[in-house]
Amino acid sequence: MAEVIAIPSSFGKATTRSAAERHESRTGWLLSMPAIVLLFMFILVPVAAVILMSFTDYELGYTGFKWVGFDNYADLVTNRTFRRSLWNTTVYTAIVAPVSIFMALGLAMLIESEGIGRSFFRTAYFLPVASLLVAMATVWQYLFHPTIGPVNALLRLADIEGPNWLGASSYVLYGLSIIGVWQSVGFNLVLFLAGLTAIPRELYAAAHVDGARSAFDRFRLVTWPMLGPTTLFVTTISVINAVKVFETVKTLTEGGPNKASEVLLFTIYQEGFVYLRVGYASAMTVVFLIILVILMFLQYRIQDRQVHYT
């Protein structure tokens, strides 16, 4: 009896619900349509196009192109500029990312444990993040000037003859790295500060009671593990941003002297938009994208395994 009644009523429900569902689904489509269209137009299709173009010898200004298979990639392997550029980007990243991460962590812990001047220090270190990098790079160029620059003038006071920071091929990467660290510490610092404030005070109390005598013990028992997610995120962002270094190179060195500061994005820019060899530059872009994908993949893997506690 109950079943007999139940069937028609559930039928009725099913049809009305599906009408409501259809309406909701249509609204959903309508609301997200502009985003979907633009996403295809400006991200997905261009990425596909870059991959396709990387298999051609297309050059801007010429009509027509040939499919060349993996020729561009084979060429990249032996291209000295590209190899130099990959190496320089690696060196730059290997300096800037760790230094800016640990400097930011150290400063964040100092600021956190210091009562006074908290917001002043945060502002001071964060200011470079909010400043126009191209402009500040110009200031650094003056600071680093071999003869009239204040940096070398200071070194001269200590009787040290400073190098030509941005003009000597053995120093230019270090000069750029200093600017890179200066520019990115503040961002990491702010994230670490937020991470530190989020650690429950009771954990430190528990660590004291449990016998963690020294500050180092408490750092290992509480601070470092609790900052895990923040550190992972800061690391990923720092590495990706370092790999994307471009502004300082374009403004200050144009890849020179003698390709000593040739970095990945600058090489792509030169090939693609100055020499207009689009096919070849596309192959470089694909390499760049693969590097980003690998970095993100690593982040997800570590995140899943290590730093999530719940």
């Binding site: 429950p200 009771e202 954990l203 009671v209 016998g211 593990p225």
Partner: peptide
Amino acid sequence: ADRNIAMVFQSYALYP
């Protein structure tokens, strides 16, 4: 750390 006094916290304060 040297008192040999143990404490159970309101939030338990377990190391996550």
